Amino acid sequence: TFTRDMAAAIFHVLGTHAPYGTYDCTGSGAVKSWADIARAVFEAANGNGGRVVPVSTADYYAGAEGPIAPRPVHSALDLSKLETSGFRMPDWEEELGEYLKTL
């Protein structure tokens, strides 16, 4: 989620006096894993997205010492409350493409 998009959503909610509560805020579009997002970034930036290897949470924390915060199996956010307030978050893949063009 790009900072400017999140800031626009926050200012929209505040400026329209949307109902009080918790609003999920993330780029719209296809739900992807962290590995999928990393793969898209690496592929767009330098063509080596195929080198990104997904790692399960269990494997990632297998050697950790001490308590580990539990992670949800599926952590996609629901944008319906934000959209009901009249704000639509931009598609994260389109925003990524636009951002990479500026580099």
Rank of each mutant, 00 (worst) to 15 (best):
Y99Q: 10
P67Q: 09
A35I: 03
G63E: 15
E98L: 12
S28N: 11
F87P: 01
W92D: 01
S28L: 03
S56V: 08
M89N: 01
P72R: 04
E83V: 06
V13W: 05
N46W: 11
A30I: 14
T1P: 13
D78I: 04
A8R: 04
E94V: 11
S33W: 06
A8I: 06
S85L: 04
E83I: 04
G66F: 03
P54V: 08
A18E: 03
I37T: 08
G21T: 05
E94T: 05
F87Y: 13
P54N: 01
M89G: 00
V31D: 12
L79F: 03
L103P: 07
P54D: 08
Y60S: 09
L100E: 01
Y23R: 02
K32G: 01
K32L: 15
M89W: 09
A9F: 07
G47Y: 09
V55P: 04
P67E: 15
T57C: 11
G86M: 03
M6L: 15
H17M: 11
V41Y: 07
A9R: 00
M6Y: 07
R51D: 13
C25R: 02
S75A: 11
P70Y: 01
T57L: 13
P67V: 12
P67D: 13
S56Y: 07
R71P: 07
V52A: 04
A64S: 15
G86C: 09
H74P: 00
G29Q: 03
G21A: 06
A7V: 13
G50R: 03
I68G: 00
F11C: 14
A58W: 02
W92S: 11
L96Q: 02
A35K: 07
